[in-house]
């Protein structure tokens, strides 16, 4: 083994203890009956509990709304921030990203207080508001990065070939920023399915999401069923990642100039 390969040993140990082992445990627990022994019992239970399946579908729906809203709000924001003519200060991008550094739980609790003061009833509306508020920076940032990396000579070339400002956007800017949108979707859609804290606080536990159900099961020591639900979610996340074409691998596309 050469020397450089040795450097990876600490990471390999870290990954095996904190990533591979827990995944393996989830996998093993999911296929075991509460009493012990190999079993599909947990999965059978999932497909027979319409309430859980409905929650699962509802979570996906909420996640889809959240992602769509984040994109609608985040893309123009990222576009303005990345444009030197519209945004001359580096502070504005910081203001957008700064909330990311405050704990999500604290922000959510603060939002609850805000709704309380404003006398807004907690429910689906406040849930989506909280989610968009929490996840918007994760949509803005990758799109902003991709837009920043687009060589301005593409805009000039498009302009030179007769494209109006609107056509430059639809035919050059937007297609070149797709990798950033993909990253943004991956970073917003996946975590929203599994989130539970936001739904718990911002709906006063009235609305349950799939993450809530997993959390309740684990909390009540239903380890095997909780693991099975986690595994199902992991598979769904994995599939979506493959389908959207994980942004990380192509997010540099805008950067390639020649």
């Amino acid at each position: 083994m050469n020397k450089r390969a040795n450097w990876s040993i600490p990471y390999a140990i870290f990954l095996s203890i904190f990533v591979a082992l827990p995944l393996l445990l989830i996998f093993v627990y999911a296929f075991r009956a509460p009493g012990g022994g190999f079993s599909f019992q947990n999965f059978v239970k999932f497909f027979n509990e319409s309430e859980v399946i409905n929650t699962f579908l509802y979570s996906i729906e909420i996640a889809a709304y959240n992602t769509a809203l984040c994109m609608l709000l985040g893309y123009p924001a990222a576009y303005i921030l990345s444009n030197n003519k519209l945004n001359k200060s580096a502070i504005t991008i910081m203001l957008f990203v700064l909330p990311m550094s405050i704990n999500a739980l604290i922000r959510t609790l603060a939002t609850v207080e805000l709704f309380d003061i404003l006398n807004v009833a907690l429910g689906e509306g406040t849930l989506i508001f909280g989610m968009v508020y929490n996840f918007l920076p994760f949509m803005i940032y990758p799109i902003y990065n991709t837009l920043r990396k687009i060589d301005p000579s593409y805009y000039e070339a498009a302009q030179d070939l007769g494209a109006s400002p609107f056509e430059i956007f639809t035919k050059v800017t937007f297609p070149l920023s797709v990798p950033g949108i993909q990253s943004g979707i991956t970073m917003v859609f996946m975590p929203t399915i599994s989130t539970f804290a936001i739904s718990e606080f911002l709906t006063n536990n009235k609305i349950k999401l799939f993450g809530t159900i997993i959390q309740e099961n684990i909390n009540s020591s239903f380890w095997n069923y909780g693991s099975a639900l986690s595994l199902i979610m992991l598979v769904i996340i994995g599939l979506t990642t493959i389908l959207t074409g994980d942004g990380s691998s192509d997010s540099q596309k805008g950067e390639q100039s020649i």
Partner: peptide, 29 residues
């Protein structure tokens, strides 16, 4: 504005659109 001028430019670093193939690049205008 540049998009209304009856002239075209060949840029120093070509600025070919990376998301389009050769045909669509040439057909852009």
């Amino acid at each position: 504005p540049p998009h209304k001028r009856p002239l075209n430019t060949v840029f120093q670093r070509y600025a070919l659109f990376p998301h389009l193939d050769v045909y669509d690049n040439v057909a852009f205008g």
